[in-house]
Design a protein around this nucleic acid. Structure first.
Lengths: 210, 210
DNA sequence: ACATTTGAACTGACTGGTCAGTGCAAAAGT
DNA sequence: ACTTTTGCACTGACCAGTCAGTTCAAATGT
């Protein structure tokens, strides 16, 4: 368990540290400027590392980006899945599960705003090498929501009329855009504020029931 | 009103036609690849025009893009405003007004998917020259929704607890993301399908009332 | 204790290609 | 007559990716 010893997985501690620095530098720069407008020199400089080091650690600029995507996506899905499971599957209501996932999404975006920004900017592009990586991620995230919705329908808790895939996508979008807007245009709001507003929208207390 | 006559603004009909061709070529290419990854040669080729013509009509690649943005944005705001006005202000319920705006949004995205894609990809970027242009558009769109929400609250139709700016942003995001998802991942669905699903979500018939 | 070797990690100057933007004479359109 | 477009050669900046050489910590030798 000694963290400085040669651990399994082939990556030395030093190497892992530089990769991490490169991820952090790349994610903010690409979120700000986009992939093509960001140069490898910039990434290296911001990471405090020589350009050659980038290529020692990653086969190419695209590969760096793809691994960065996978890295961030792992964090997101883990976070979502954990939230769905925390609100115990069969005991609690499914609305509560959705609500918990909304909060998990907000917490994630709060912690990794640059990654989210970058993700949204690249998701709907076509003809890009890493398209499939992005789709996989999207599918994982949406699938968790879809699962909860389906359970709720089977449950009788949700109407049978709802279109599960479309509704799941809309919910994800709602959280995504509301959160990006929050971070960009009203950063002073608290997470609880934003969560409360979305929660109310979800539960139809805006217009549905009186 | 003769469209072929020398209209105001100094642009001849021929010139206007090439500018239009360049807009159309640029919008799809930039939506697919992003601004930096799209070359002027590509744009010229797709528009069926010589490279020199691009520079005869626009001062630079960035200027072309900025004017393209302004052009598309004009279409969007006109479309939204028209939708808001069509559902007469005081007579109908505000939910209906929201519903009509959702449909207007979907129709717009259906007609100009590339522009929407490009818009979303660029909106949350920082440190870009055309940021302010994009923000203005966002503000206009969200403001229309906010107005309807506020009217509904004054009306008694919506709960007084709702957070107007946040809810407006969330609604816009819901439509935006659901529509982009529709176009990218389930293009066979009809507009009515998508509209119905979003409508149901809006009216809280997913989870709210039993 | 100290010297020597090893090799993974890192460096930064350099290369080859790409691309925004220019210049201009001839052609086409109105 | 004039505006607009064409075609194409050219420049200069910029940038992804390479590679010969350096650093340093741990392993090995004495």
């Amino acid at each position: 368990m000694d963290s400085s010893s040669t651990t399994s997985g082939g990556g030395s501690a030093r190497r892992e540290a530089t990769r991490q620095k490169l991820y952090e530098a790349a994610v903010t720069l690409i979120a700000e400027q986009g992939f093509s407008a960001t140069t490898v020199d910039e990434i290296a400089e911001r990471a405090g590392v020589a350009k050659g080091t980038v290529y020692y650690n990653f086969a190419s600029k695209s590969v760096l980006f793809e691994e960065l995507l996978r890295h961030g996506v792992g964090l997101l899905t883990a976070s979502l899945r954990e939230a769905a499971e925390r609100t115990v599957g069969d005991g609690g209501s499914k609305v509560d599960a959705l609500d918990a996932m909304i909060r998990a999404g907000l917490v994630f975006i709060d912690r990794y705003p640059a990654f989210t920004q970058l993700y949204v900017a690249e998701l709907w592009r076509t003809n890009r090498a890493w398209q499939s990586t992005l789709m996989v991620v999207r599918q994982q995230a949406v699938a968790v929501v879809e699962g909860v919705l389906r359970d709720g329908v089977a449950n009788g808790e949700f109407s049978e009329e709802i279109d599960v895939p479309l509704t799941a996508a809309a919910l994800v979008g709602m959280v995504l855009v509301a959160a990006l807007d929050w971070k960009s245009f009203q950063p002073e709001r608290s997470l609880d504020d934003v969560h409360a507003a979305l929660s109310r929208l979800l539960q139809g207390r805006v217009s549905g029931c009186r």
